[in-house]
Write a protein that binds this DNA or RNA. Structure first.
Length: 466
RNA sequence: GGCCCUAUCGUCUAACGGUUAGGACGGAAGCUUUUCAAGCUUUAAAUCCGGGUUCGAUUCCCGGUAGGGUCACCA
């Protein structure tokens, strides 16, 4: 709701260096820049800081670009520092000419000559939108190196020149940049540039409160995307790490975030990257997605493991059930690996006595009790078969074979005999698992024919043990 | 170590001098078609410590402690 957008011409930049895969912390910095720019109708510049030829890699730049695209971050201008060497050279020459920098003979280090900044050693006070006034001495910085030679500017110099040339009004970056600020301000002053407003956002931490890095698991945006996380969830999660609009609503679309975003409400302390909360966000967004789109994804994953035709047949029925159990698409593969999906497609294999309700089985004192339980369980399964056959006379009337109808038919009998003694065996006969969806839903998914076949199979297995 | 930043439930956070310190994730318990899942309900759980200022401090100030960042011819 910014009404003042026209007044100030805001220009921000996101300036990553392509020396690693797109980190979630970087992603959040990019997002905060974008929120701020969009809210104020300002300009958002993407600047690849690739002055270190030894460490840059094209694949890292691609990772950043792909990640930004995935997060829906669009930029108004794009630059690579490696393509701007003439500009740096010009300013370097100017500073040397004005004796604000000088070519220095070196006794140690890689090369015998570098360009150093003539540090006036003044005290720098700058205001930070998040932290307030920050004061630092620059004397102990000495005459720091700003370029290896006229062709090879170093980070601080390139940043300062670019921020100046590009008219950057607000520098929004990670807290690790805070101690770089005085050096950059010194260079700005030498350049005659105006000073941007700073906002140093807190770092994203690992669970042990150290800086989040590869040894803590997935830290790159690429990994989360590949695991099937939804970009909406990632955006929401990242935005709420260190910032929140104050109310009790947690689910915010990117548009809503842009509307309410406020740098002065950004937290000062670092925030731990909490995967469980991310998963919760993901699940919430998963639920909001249209079922058929999700069904297509579920189908394509399951078809890798099971007969595609069978998967296709009842995809619409079990997609919602599967979705209830996962927070990320990738979890579906885990479910398959854990055998939690197979019974939809293949007749289950199990120990016969597993058909007996475990609560009853536990109470059995001896072989005789157990035998009686087998008999009772078989009787109950037979009755279920009987009821089903009686009520669904024609084979193949799949449409009528609904969970509601099945429940209606079985329910009275189940209540009569004890729900546990009827429902457990029924469910187990159909799934072969101690944990599964409820028997009625499962029966509907399997269809009349398969349901009866599995029940009869169970009955026969019990028969053999009697 | 120097400089700098930070400090509310386990975690993310709300409360910008007066609240039974609120919400969410996660945990526990209960309910539901005696398994799961989902859902709903309930519940445990925090102002780092010590001094000030003030009628009154989570909130303001100082000190301590703890954590973090940064100190390149990397970015």
């Amino acid at each position: 709701m910014p009404e003042h957008s026209e007044k100030e011409n805001i220009v921000v930049r996101f300036a990553p260096s392509p020396t690693g895969f797109f980190h979630v912390g970087s992603a959040r910095t990019a997002l905060f820049n974008e929120f701020f720019a969009r809210q104020h109708g300002g300009k958002f510049i993407l600047r690849i800081e690739d002055t270190d030829e030894m460490r840059n890699e094209k694949r890292f730049e691609e990772s950043i670009l792909n990640g930004l695209k995935w997060l829906g971050v669009s930029y108004d201008e794009f630059y690579r520092q490696s393509e701007r060497k003439d500009i740096y050279k010009k300013y370097l020459g100017k500073l040397v000419e004005e004796d604000k920098a000088y070519v220095s003979k070196e006794e140690q280090g890689e090369r015998s000559e570098v360009i150093r900044f003539r540090n006036p050693g003044t005290e720098i006070i700058f205001s930070d939108m998040i932290r307030g006034e920050v004061k630092m001495h620059t004397g102990d910085l000495g005459d720091f190196v700003i370029a290896k030679d006229f062709e090879s500017p170093l980070y601080h110099f390139a940043v300062s020149v670019d921020d100046f040339e590009m008219g950057i009004t607000h520098v929004i970056r990670g807290e690790d940049g805070i101690s770089n600020t005085p050096r950059q301000i010194l260079i700005q002053e030498a350049l005659g540039a105006s000073r941007p407003t700073y906002a140093h956002i807190p770092l994203i931490l690992a669970p042990d409160r150290s800086k989040l890095s590869k040894r803590h698991g997935a830290v790159s945006i690429d990994e989360y995307r590949e695991l099937g996380y939804l970009s909406e969830a990632m955006i929401n999660f990242l935005a709420f790490l260190g910032w929140n609009p104050g109310g009790e609503q947690e689910i915010f679309s990117k548009e809503e975030i842009i509307q309410t975003f406020d740098l002065s409400r950004v937290q000062k302390g670092g925030a731990i990257f909490n995967l469980e909360k991310l998963n919760w966000f993901n699940k919430a967004y998963l639920k909001k997605l249209p079922q058929d789109a999700l069904g297509a994804q579920v189908e394509s994953i399951l078809s890798e493991y099971y007969d595609a035709a069978i998967v296709k047949k009842s995809i619409a029925k079990f997609t919602p059930i599967l979705l209830e159990r996962i927070s990320v698409m990738e979890d579906l593969r885990k479910m398959v690996a854990d055998g939690e999906v197979a019974y939809y497609f293949l007749p289950p294999e199990y120990e016969t006595d597993m058909l007996i309700n475990p609560k009853e089985k536990k109470q059995a004192q001896n072989e005789e009790d157990l035998s009686m339980l087998r008999e009772k369980t078989k009787k109950n399964i037979d009755e279920i078969v009987n009821l089903l056959q009686k009520n669904f006379p024609e084979e193949g009337s799949e449409a009528a074979f609904s969970s509601e109808r099945i429940k209606e038919i079985i329910w009275k009998f189940a209540e009569q005999e004890g729900k546990g003694s009827v429902l457990w065996p029924m469910r187990f006969a159909l799934s072969g698992r101690e944990k599964s969806v409820d028997p009625f839903t499962l029966a509907e998914i399997l269809g009349q024919k398969e349901t009866l076949s599995r029940l009869r199979e169970a009955s026969q297995k019990l028969e053999k043990k009697l």
